[in-house]
Simulated scan of single mutants.
Amino acid sequence: MADTDGLLDARDFGGAASGTGGFHVKGAQAQDWGLQNRLARIFKADTGRTVMLAFDHGYFLGPMAGLERIDVNIAPLVPDADAIMLTRGVLRTSIPPATDAGIVLRASGGPSVLRDLSDEHIALDMEDAVRLNAAAVAIQVFVGSENESRSIANLAALVDAGQRHGVAVLGVTAVGKDMVRDARYFRLATRISAEMGAHIVKTYYVEEGFETVTASCPVPIIVAGGKKLPELDALTMAYRSIQEGAAGVDMGRNIFQSENPAGMLAAIRAVVHDEVKPEEAYQLFKDHSAAGTAS
């Protein structure tokens, strides 16, 4: 066991990135063609970034506000997302097969919101992910929780299966109610996920030191939208995330619980892919909302 006494805080996160090998997704230059191709379905080649629309919340929350009818409320938004994060049940029942969005399937589950959420298991066979033409599968990693070791073992098992089939794995850093949400924790959680083989890591934005989180993770980091925020605040968080090294955002409630989901998705795209400032993007959102009202 490594001696953890007297460890120094990591502090040198500078220097230019190297070894991209001509492929636009960070850390994937040595992957097989099939896995690179799947990553390219998620991250746009011209920007290296992604706008992912997440609506997998029902796997532990049930039909929350905005997700009562996936076919009515969410399916019309899918064409404007680079990728979508969802369960296989919703994909088969509610999403048109002609979609061009990269499919990211939720691969972990078990407990509902009424139980300990860290008590998860792998809930998707990789062969089914391939059958559904998934670009990636997603799994929670509960660093610091009671079930930390199992969740990391679940991630490792999924990575092994993903490498065999050429399917990317997205590690999602889960944060419990009692965990500190700071850069030091997220550096730990994201780095562990990447070291265990995750091809993408999803985490939360923090206002202090987030650039050290993205710099110290050797694979792309995408930022979770988290709880519903006022539109300008959500756009500001997305903008700062990108400016500080994130490769995209994975927004759920901040899009589908917005008063104008389509307008918010368009505004988020402008921030992520065109680096439009939050205030300009917010005006784009308002213009879209006004046009929708007028029609």
Rank of each mutant, 00 (worst) to 15 (best):
D5G: 14
L8W: 02
G14M: 12
G19A: 07
G21E: 07
G27T: 07
Q29F: 09
A30E: 10
Q31F: 14
G34Q: 05
R38T: 08
L39E: 01
I42N: 05
F43Q: 13
F43M: 06
K44Y: 10
D46W: 15
V51T: 15
V51S: 07
P63V: 06
M64C: 14
V72Y: 05
D80Q: 07
T87V: 02
R88H: 05
V90T: 04
P97L: 02
T99P: 01
T99C: 03
I103P: 03
E120G: 10
I122N: 06
I122L: 10
L124Y: 04
D125F: 09
I139N: 12
V143W: 00
V143Q: 03
D160P: 02
H165N: 11
V167S: 09
V167G: 13
A168L: 06
V172N: 08
T173G: 10
V175R: 06
M179S: 11
M179F: 07
D182Q: 12
I192E: 12
S193P: 12
E195F: 03
H199Y: 05
I200E: 00
F210N: 12
K228S: 10
L229R: 15
P230A: 08
L235P: 14
R240V: 10
S241K: 02
G245D: 06
A247F: 01
V249P: 08
D250F: 05
A266F: 03
I268Q: 05
V271C: 03
V272C: 04
P278Y: 05
K286L: 15
D287R: 04
S295Q: 00
